[in-house]
Design a binder for these strands. Sequence first.
DNA 1: ATGTACAAATGACACAGGTCAATAAGATTG
DNA 2: CAATCTTATTGACCTGTGTCATTTGTACAT
Lengths: 256, 256
Amino acid sequence: MSNASGVIPSNAMSTLAQQNPHFRKRSQIACSKCTLGKLCLVRNLDEDETEQFENIVNKSRPIHAGEHIFRIGDPLDCIAAVRAGCFKSYVIDKNGEEHVLGFYLPGEIIGFDAIDGKTHKANVIALDTSSVCGLSFDSVADMARQLPSLQEELFRVMSAQISELESNAADLSAEERIARLLCSLSTRIARRGYSPTEFNLSMSRRDIASNLRLATETISRVLARFQSAGLIRVNRKKVELVDLDKLRELAHRDTG
Amino acid sequence: MSNASGVIPSNAMSTLAQQNPHFRKRSQIACSKCTLGKLCLVRNLDEDETEQFENIVNKSRPIHAGEHIFRIGDPLDCIAAVRAGCFKSYVIDKNGEEHVLGFYLPGEIIGFDAIDGKTHKANVIALDTSSVCGLSFDSVADMARQLPSLQEELFRVMSAQISELESNAADLSAEERIARLLCSLSTRIARRGYSPTEFNLSMSRRDIASNLRLATETISRVLARFQSAGLIRVNRKKVELVDLDKLRELAHRDTG
DNA sequence: ATGTACAAATGACACAGGTCAATAAGATTG
DNA sequence: CAATCTTATTGACCTGTGTCATTTGTACAT
């Protein structure tokens, strides 16, 4: 804990700020040509603005499953935009138990919780082979003062994260929570043009359990129940959402 | 639900934007002389900047317990800074059950969840006689582009809210959750210079229960247990935290 | 292919906290 | 200052989910 160093520092003397190997400047990446199709912070920027933005983006090298991009206590140098793959954020409690705070898919931004206090508040680890764009938060903030659309988008994304977390706080049954996670993944994957009904669970049952505050056994049992009810078909990491409507109904207990 | 009109509209034809009676311009309030002592968004502004900021602040009239300042669906015109009193935010689920999302004390900002989608996502109601400062979010954002410290503070506060919500998501026992709420209230109250060990629970047991996802009976029982263990003394709304250290220990299950 | 190791599924049982019901203590009204 | 209503407390019992133990499945290495 005293060494909150991030990301397998190959050079022990280096500051994270300059040397975090995931965020070292490699190539300028053209956001305008990103496979994500401007799903990211540049969403509402015009061509010129996007070009400006590209100057502060560092693309990372591929990150292997199991590699950390942030660790608790790391100074907030970068926030990260997921380009490909999947990440989870987690903390370890007093008893050494891991608690998964959330999952991040391409197009999503990791690290907003680090702005307050200027240090990262969760560990973030790749679940699949992944890549991210590193964004110096200071640079983004500076640029946001020049580009209203960028500022607006930053506020919007943070706001959405607050809403999301607020609604997750609801007291749901195991079935409701699992339905909700499946639906959430579905829409987030669909946003990128992939099938909303057939996808890969990059995270283990244990990760799901930890994130939903359930036992892994409960995850297994509920998935089995969903399958025999004809709602889904699961095989290990593969899921098919057969009856998405019914799942959504289960998930959306809350209305206005 | 179709009429998501806010705040007891005395004039049915008025738009909320212009007429929300809580946020109608009444008096410019000098933030520099606010009883909160710059606990608010102006925290890091210098004198000139604070003066600028005051121009976009509308102070509300007193708000009575039970009055709403926002309702779900209200357009995001204003966010609100609590000056005095206490608020809760809540939603109603399909079954008509209320779910309390959070409590807001003086110095805290309500409405960040409304930026995404430009509509309020929760009902917000006063629990005590209260007052708030209304802040046009657009004006605040505009000004934030001129005043780096203001933008920084906005990002910081939103970030803190994200961290807070993430850590609330942990899977805690009833005792841990209640200890955590008591400690949270304690530090938030202490921030304003009041006693961290003796204060008023503005919210009902039912509100606490809903917020912590417990039954009201459990709240009563745990408070009783805490009392007989010598951790607190409770009588209705009055609480005294006798052994704050032990309470904190109970509350802070999570470490890095 | 065979062995090994880890992830997932399944079953038996326990317990924290929910639910329901009754009572008590304040608050509010006439 | 009754009468009434609401909120809080307390008790008895029930249920969903956790825990622990065992089995099955899958991937990977030899």
